[in-house]
Protein backbone atom coordinates (compact mmCIF):
# COMPACT_ATOMS: atom_id res chain seq x y z
CA UNK A 1 0.00 0.00 0.00
CA UNK A 2 2.94 2.32 0.67
CA UNK A 3 4.06 2.06 -2.94
CA UNK A 4 0.61 3.07 -4.15
CA UNK A 5 0.66 6.22 -2.02
CA UNK A 6 4.20 7.19 -3.05
CA UNK A 7 2.66 7.98 -6.45
CA UNK A 8 1.48 11.33 -5.13
CA UNK A 9 3.14 11.70 -1.70
CA UNK A 10 6.73 11.76 -0.44
CA UNK A 11 7.80 8.42 1.08
CA UNK A 12 7.32 9.46 4.70
CA UNK A 13 3.86 10.86 4.04
CA UNK A 14 2.94 7.70 2.17
CA UNK A 15 4.19 5.55 5.04
CA UNK A 16 2.21 7.61 7.51
CA UNK A 17 -1.07 7.45 5.58
CA UNK A 18 -0.66 3.76 4.78
CA UNK A 19 0.02 2.89 8.42
CA UNK A 20 -2.99 4.84 9.62
CA UNK A 21 -5.18 3.02 7.11
CA UNK A 22 -3.71 -0.34 8.16
CA UNK A 23 -4.46 0.44 11.80
CA UNK A 24 -8.06 1.30 10.92
CA UNK A 25 -8.37 -1.86 8.83
CA UNK A 26 -7.44 -3.87 11.93
CA UNK A 27 -9.14 -1.82 14.65
CA UNK A 28 -12.58 -1.24 13.11
CA UNK A 29 -13.35 -4.90 12.30
CA UNK A 30 -11.97 -5.72 15.74
CA UNK A 31 -14.51 -3.44 17.39
CA UNK A 32 -17.26 -5.04 15.31
CA UNK A 33 -15.94 -8.48 16.29
CA UNK A 34 -15.98 -7.47 19.96
CA UNK A 35 -19.61 -6.37 19.67
CA UNK A 36 -20.61 -9.64 18.01
CA UNK A 37 -18.53 -11.74 20.40
CA UNK A 38 -20.33 -10.22 23.39
CA UNK A 39 -23.57 -11.29 21.76
CA UNK A 40 -22.14 -14.75 21.06
CA UNK A 41 -20.96 -15.05 24.64
CA UNK A 42 -24.41 -14.26 25.97
CA UNK A 43 -26.08 -16.63 23.51
CA UNK A 44 -23.74 -19.53 24.32
CA UNK A 45 -24.09 -18.92 28.01
CA UNK A 46 -27.88 -18.78 27.68
CA UNK A 47 -27.99 -21.98 25.61
CA UNK A 48 -25.99 -23.84 28.24
CA UNK A 49 -28.32 -22.57 30.94
CA UNK A 50 -31.38 -23.56 28.82
CA UNK A 51 -32.40 -19.93 28.37
CA UNK A 52 -32.98 -17.99 25.17
CA UNK A 53 -30.51 -15.18 25.62
CA UNK A 54 -30.83 -11.86 23.78
CA UNK A 55 -33.51 -12.29 21.09
CA UNK A 56 -35.40 -9.01 20.86
CA UNK A 57 -33.21 -6.44 19.07
CA UNK A 58 -32.82 -7.32 15.41
CA UNK A 59 -33.09 -10.84 13.91
CA UNK A 60 -32.11 -13.42 16.58
CA UNK A 61 -31.11 -10.47 18.78
CA UNK A 62 -28.05 -9.89 16.61
CA UNK A 63 -28.09 -6.13 17.21
CA UNK A 64 -28.25 -6.43 20.99
CA UNK A 65 -24.66 -5.24 21.54
CA UNK A 66 -25.22 -2.17 19.39
CA UNK A 67 -28.40 -1.31 21.28
CA UNK A 68 -26.48 -1.69 24.55
CA UNK A 69 -23.69 0.49 23.20
CA UNK A 70 -26.15 3.19 22.17
CA UNK A 71 -27.86 3.07 25.54
CA UNK A 72 -24.58 3.34 27.42
CA UNK A 73 -23.49 6.18 25.16
CA UNK A 74 -26.53 8.23 26.13
CA UNK A 75 -26.03 7.83 29.87
CA UNK A 76 -24.43 10.40 32.10
CA UNK A 77 -20.79 9.91 33.09
CA UNK A 78 -20.69 10.02 36.85
CA UNK A 79 -17.41 10.68 38.62
CA UNK A 80 -17.55 10.10 42.39
CA UNK A 81 -16.85 13.34 44.23
CA UNK A 82 -13.93 11.93 46.23
CA UNK A 83 -12.40 10.09 43.26
CA UNK A 84 -9.10 11.07 41.74
CA UNK A 85 -10.71 12.56 38.67
CA UNK A 86 -7.90 12.41 36.12
CA UNK A 87 -6.84 8.85 36.86
CA UNK A 88 -10.46 7.75 37.17
CA UNK A 89 -11.09 8.81 33.58
CA UNK A 90 -7.74 7.60 32.21
CA UNK A 91 -8.00 4.06 33.62
CA UNK A 92 -10.65 2.70 31.19
CA UNK A 93 -8.83 4.37 28.31
CA UNK A 94 -5.64 2.50 29.26
CA UNK A 95 -7.48 -0.83 29.41
CA UNK A 96 -9.11 -0.26 26.05
CA UNK A 97 -5.96 1.02 24.31
CA UNK A 98 -3.79 -1.82 25.56
CA UNK A 99 -6.34 -4.34 24.32
CA UNK A 100 -6.12 -2.82 20.82
CA UNK A 101 -2.39 -2.13 20.63
CA UNK A 102 -1.30 -5.76 20.94
CA UNK A 103 -3.01 -6.66 17.66
CA UNK A 104 -0.26 -4.83 15.76
CA UNK A 105 1.94 -7.93 15.65
CA UNK A 106 -0.67 -10.67 15.10
CA UNK A 107 -0.21 -12.12 11.58
CA UNK A 108 -3.48 -12.46 9.65
CA UNK A 109 -1.95 -13.96 6.53
CA UNK A 110 1.28 -14.61 4.67
CA UNK A 111 1.99 -10.90 4.34
CA UNK A 112 -0.83 -9.39 6.34
CA UNK A 113 0.75 -8.16 9.55
CA UNK A 114 0.93 -4.54 10.60
CA UNK A 115 4.32 -4.63 12.35
CA UNK A 116 6.48 -7.59 11.36
CA UNK A 117 9.04 -6.94 14.10
CA UNK A 118 11.52 -9.55 15.26
CA UNK A 119 10.54 -9.19 18.92
CA UNK A 120 6.83 -9.70 18.25
CA UNK A 121 6.18 -12.11 21.09
CA UNK A 122 8.08 -9.95 23.59
CA UNK A 123 6.00 -7.00 22.41
CA UNK A 124 2.83 -8.92 23.22
CA UNK A 125 4.21 -9.86 26.62
CA UNK A 126 5.13 -6.22 27.25
CA UNK A 127 1.75 -4.88 26.18
CA UNK A 128 -0.21 -7.47 28.12
CA UNK A 129 1.78 -6.61 31.22
CA UNK A 130 0.47 -3.05 30.85
CA UNK A 131 -3.11 -4.25 31.10
CA UNK A 132 -2.88 -4.43 34.87
CA UNK A 133 -2.50 -0.66 35.14
CA UNK A 134 -5.99 0.09 33.88
CA UNK A 135 -7.47 -2.16 36.54
CA UNK A 136 -5.22 -1.01 39.38
CA UNK A 137 -5.72 2.67 38.59
CA UNK A 138 -9.47 2.22 38.32
CA UNK A 139 -9.54 0.51 41.70
CA UNK A 140 -7.38 3.06 43.43
CA UNK A 141 -8.79 6.22 41.89
CA UNK A 142 -12.40 5.25 42.64
CA UNK A 143 -11.57 5.83 46.32
CA UNK A 144 -13.94 3.09 47.34
CA UNK A 145 -13.40 -0.16 49.21
CA UNK A 146 -14.63 -2.85 46.83
CA UNK A 147 -12.88 -1.48 43.76
CA UNK A 148 -9.66 -1.29 45.73
CA UNK A 149 -9.93 -4.91 46.91
CA UNK A 150 -10.61 -5.87 43.33
CA UNK A 151 -7.61 -3.93 42.05
CA UNK A 152 -5.31 -5.68 44.51
CA UNK A 153 -6.69 -9.07 43.55
CA UNK A 154 -6.35 -8.26 39.86
CA UNK A 155 -2.76 -7.09 40.17
CA UNK A 156 -1.69 -10.18 42.11
CA UNK A 157 -3.56 -12.47 39.73
CA UNK A 158 -2.18 -10.95 36.53
CA UNK A 159 1.40 -10.79 37.79
CA UNK A 160 1.21 -14.42 38.97
CA UNK A 161 -0.05 -15.82 35.71
CA UNK A 162 2.25 -13.70 33.58
CA UNK A 163 5.14 -15.70 35.04
CA UNK A 164 3.88 -19.04 33.78
CA UNK A 165 2.74 -17.47 30.49
CA UNK A 166 6.29 -16.18 30.06
CA UNK A 167 7.75 -19.67 30.46
CA UNK A 168 5.20 -21.17 28.09
CA UNK A 169 6.16 -18.57 25.51
CA UNK A 170 9.82 -19.51 26.03
CA UNK A 171 9.05 -23.10 25.02
CA UNK A 172 7.26 -21.88 21.89
CA UNK A 173 10.13 -19.54 21.04
CA UNK A 174 12.66 -22.35 21.54
CA UNK A 175 10.68 -24.62 19.24
CA UNK A 176 10.27 -22.00 16.52
CA UNK A 177 13.72 -20.48 16.98
CA UNK A 178 12.40 -16.94 16.75
CA UNK A 179 10.42 -14.24 18.54
CA UNK A 180 8.83 -13.15 15.28
CA UNK A 181 5.14 -14.07 15.13
CA UNK A 182 5.22 -14.83 11.41
CA UNK A 183 8.20 -17.18 11.84
CA UNK A 184 6.45 -18.89 14.74
CA UNK A 185 3.43 -19.54 12.52
CA UNK A 186 5.51 -20.79 9.61
CA UNK A 187 7.59 -23.03 11.88
CA UNK A 188 4.41 -25.01 12.57
CA UNK A 189 3.99 -25.92 8.93
CA UNK A 190 4.23 -29.67 8.34
CA UNK A 191 4.53 -30.51 12.02
CA UNK A 192 3.98 -34.19 13.07
CA UNK A 193 5.14 -36.22 10.04
CA UNK A 194 4.35 -33.38 7.66
CA UNK A 195 0.60 -33.81 8.12
CA UNK A 196 -0.62 -31.02 10.32
CA UNK A 197 0.07 -27.31 10.48
CA UNK A 198 0.05 -26.91 14.24
CA UNK A 199 2.30 -27.99 17.07
CA UNK A 200 -0.42 -28.14 19.70
CA UNK A 201 -0.53 -31.94 19.37
CA UNK A 202 3.23 -32.26 19.49
CA UNK A 203 3.74 -34.33 22.67
CA UNK A 204 6.38 -31.91 23.91
CA UNK A 205 4.24 -28.82 23.46
CA UNK A 206 0.72 -30.13 24.11
CA UNK A 207 0.92 -29.74 27.93
CA UNK A 208 2.12 -26.19 27.42
CA UNK A 209 -0.80 -25.41 25.12
CA UNK A 210 -3.17 -26.52 27.90
CA UNK A 211 -1.29 -24.46 30.49
CA UNK A 212 -1.41 -21.48 28.15
CA UNK A 213 -5.15 -21.85 27.55
CA UNK A 214 -5.88 -21.91 31.29
CA UNK A 215 -3.42 -19.13 32.02
CA UNK A 216 -4.96 -16.95 29.36
CA UNK A 217 -8.34 -17.35 31.05
CA UNK A 218 -6.75 -16.28 34.32
CA UNK A 219 -4.87 -13.43 32.66
CA UNK A 220 -8.05 -11.99 31.17
CA UNK A 221 -9.90 -12.57 34.47
CA UNK A 222 -12.55 -14.68 32.77
CA UNK A 223 -14.67 -17.14 34.68
CA UNK A 224 -13.67 -19.38 36.52
CA UNK A 225 -10.94 -16.93 37.50
CA UNK A 226 -13.08 -13.77 37.59
CA UNK A 227 -12.33 -13.00 41.21
CA UNK A 228 -11.67 -9.38 40.35
CA UNK A 229 -15.35 -8.86 39.67
CA UNK A 230 -16.83 -11.59 41.82
CA UNK A 231 -20.29 -10.10 42.17
CA UNK A 232 -21.14 -11.99 45.35
CA UNK A 233 -18.16 -10.47 47.15
CA UNK A 234 -17.15 -7.24 45.43
CA UNK A 235 -20.30 -5.89 43.73
CA UNK A 236 -18.68 -5.33 40.30
CA UNK A 237 -15.06 -5.09 41.39
CA UNK A 238 -13.02 -2.28 39.94
CA UNK A 239 -15.89 -1.24 37.66
CA UNK A 240 -18.27 -0.56 40.53
CA UNK A 241 -18.04 3.24 40.40
CA UNK A 242 -18.00 3.46 36.63
CA UNK A 243 -20.87 4.48 34.40
CA UNK A 244 -21.64 5.34 30.82
CA UNK A 245 -18.82 5.23 28.26
CA UNK A 246 -16.05 4.75 30.78
CA UNK A 247 -17.78 1.53 31.82
CA UNK A 248 -18.27 0.57 28.19
CA UNK A 249 -14.56 1.04 27.53
CA UNK A 250 -13.74 -1.46 30.29
CA UNK A 251 -16.25 -3.84 28.80
CA UNK A 252 -14.86 -3.52 25.27
CA UNK A 253 -11.27 -3.73 26.50
CA UNK A 254 -12.04 -6.88 28.44
CA UNK A 255 -13.53 -8.65 25.45
CA UNK A 256 -10.79 -7.28 23.20
CA UNK A 257 -8.30 -8.93 25.54
CA UNK A 258 -10.24 -12.19 25.43
CA UNK A 259 -10.16 -12.13 21.62
CA UNK A 260 -6.45 -11.35 21.72
CA UNK A 261 -5.80 -14.32 23.99
CA UNK A 262 -7.84 -16.55 21.67
CA UNK A 263 -5.77 -15.29 18.74
CA UNK A 264 -2.57 -15.99 20.68
CA UNK A 265 -3.69 -19.53 21.49
CA UNK A 266 -4.46 -20.03 17.81
CA UNK A 267 -1.21 -18.46 16.62
CA UNK A 268 1.27 -19.96 19.04
CA UNK A 269 0.01 -23.53 19.20
CA UNK A 270 -2.57 -24.16 16.50
CA UNK A 271 -1.00 -22.77 13.36
CA UNK A 272 -2.40 -19.24 13.20
CA UNK A 273 -3.49 -18.44 9.67
CA UNK A 274 -2.26 -21.76 8.25
CA UNK A 275 -4.92 -24.35 7.39
CA UNK A 276 -4.96 -27.11 10.02
CA UNK A 277 -3.94 -29.86 7.59
CA UNK A 278 -1.03 -29.44 5.22
CA UNK A 279 -3.01 -30.22 2.08
CA UNK A 280 -2.80 -28.04 -1.03
CA UNK A 281 -6.52 -27.28 -1.72
CA UNK A 282 -6.94 -25.94 1.81
CA UNK A 283 -4.48 -23.16 0.99
CA UNK A 284 -7.04 -21.65 -1.40
CA UNK A 285 -9.03 -20.53 1.62
CA UNK A 286 -7.58 -17.18 2.74
CA UNK A 287 -5.48 -17.32 5.89
CA UNK A 288 -7.61 -14.79 7.72
CA UNK A 289 -10.58 -17.17 7.57
CA UNK A 290 -8.58 -19.99 9.16
CA UNK A 291 -7.34 -17.62 11.84
CA UNK A 292 -10.86 -16.38 12.48
CA UNK A 293 -12.22 -19.92 12.68
CA UNK A 294 -9.57 -20.81 15.23
CA UNK A 295 -10.22 -17.66 17.26
CA UNK A 296 -13.94 -18.46 17.31
CA UNK A 297 -13.27 -22.05 18.35
CA UNK A 298 -11.19 -20.84 21.26
CA UNK A 299 -13.79 -18.26 22.17
CA UNK A 300 -16.37 -21.03 22.28
CA UNK A 301 -14.12 -22.89 24.74
CA UNK A 302 -13.83 -19.72 26.83
CA UNK A 303 -17.63 -19.33 26.91
CA UNK A 304 -18.14 -23.00 27.57
CA UNK A 305 -15.83 -22.85 30.57
CA UNK A 306 -17.53 -19.68 31.79
CA UNK A 307 -20.93 -21.32 31.62
CA UNK A 308 -19.96 -24.59 33.29
CA UNK A 309 -17.11 -24.19 35.78
CA UNK A 310 -17.72 -22.66 39.21
CA UNK A 311 -15.51 -19.80 40.38
CA UNK A 312 -12.18 -20.60 42.01
CA UNK A 313 -11.33 -19.59 45.54
CA UNK A 314 -8.54 -17.05 45.70
CA UNK A 315 -6.08 -19.40 47.42
CA UNK A 316 -6.82 -22.07 44.81
CA UNK A 317 -6.09 -19.54 42.09
CA UNK A 318 -2.75 -18.61 43.60
CA UNK A 319 -1.88 -22.26 44.23
CA UNK A 320 -2.61 -23.15 40.63
CA UNK A 321 -0.45 -20.31 39.34
CA UNK A 322 2.56 -20.57 41.60
CA UNK A 323 2.67 -24.17 42.79
CA UNK A 324 1.48 -26.02 39.70
CA UNK A 325 1.87 -23.98 36.51
CA UNK A 326 5.16 -22.30 37.38
CA UNK A 327 7.13 -25.49 38.22
CA UNK A 328 5.45 -27.36 35.37
CA UNK A 329 6.28 -24.73 32.75
CA UNK A 330 9.81 -24.36 34.12
CA UNK A 331 10.28 -28.12 33.83
CA UNK A 332 8.99 -27.98 30.28
CA UNK A 333 11.46 -25.25 29.35
CA UNK A 334 14.20 -27.69 30.44
CA UNK A 335 12.61 -30.58 28.56
CA UNK A 336 12.09 -28.67 25.32
CA UNK A 337 15.52 -27.05 25.33
CA UNK A 338 17.12 -30.42 26.22
CA UNK A 339 15.27 -32.16 23.41
CA UNK A 340 16.29 -29.46 20.97
CA UNK A 341 19.91 -29.72 22.10
CA UNK A 342 19.77 -33.45 21.43
CA UNK A 343 18.06 -33.24 18.05
CA UNK A 344 18.36 -29.87 16.39
CA UNK A 345 21.28 -27.91 17.77
CA UNK A 346 23.35 -30.83 19.05
CA UNK A 347 27.15 -30.78 19.04
Amino acid sequence: MISWFTGFLPYEGAWFVATIIDILVIALPLMLAVAMIIYADRKIWAAMALRRGPNVVGPFGLLQSFADGLKVFLKETIVPSSANRGLFLIAPIITFTVALVAWAVIPFGARAVLADINVGLLYILAVSSLGVYGVVLAGWSSNSKYPFYSAIRAAAQMVSYEVSIGFVLVTVVLWAGSFNMQTIVLAQKGEILGLFNFNGLNPLLFPMSVVFLISSMAETARAPFDLTEAESELVAGYQTEYSSMSFALFWLGEYGNVLLMCALNATLFWGGWLPPIDWAPLYYVPGIIWLFAKILAFFFIFSWVKATVPRYRYDQLMRLGWKIFLPLSLLWVFLVSGWLMLTRYGA
Binding site: L122, Y123, L125, A126, V127, S129, L130, V132, V159, E162
Partner: peptide, 11 residues
Amino acid sequence: AMLLVIVYVGA
Protein backbone atom coordinates in the same frame (compact mmCIF):
# COMPACT_ATOMS: atom_id res chain seq x y z
CA ALA B 1 13.28 -1.80 24.90
CA MET B 2 10.90 -4.73 25.31
CA LEU B 3 12.77 -5.94 28.39
CA LEU B 4 12.54 -2.45 29.86
CA VAL B 5 8.77 -2.48 29.44
CA ILE B 6 8.29 -6.08 30.61
CA VAL B 7 10.57 -5.90 33.64
CA TYR B 8 10.30 -2.31 34.82
CA VAL B 9 6.83 -1.27 33.72
CA GLY B 10 5.20 -4.68 33.96
CA ALA B 11 6.67 -5.92 37.23
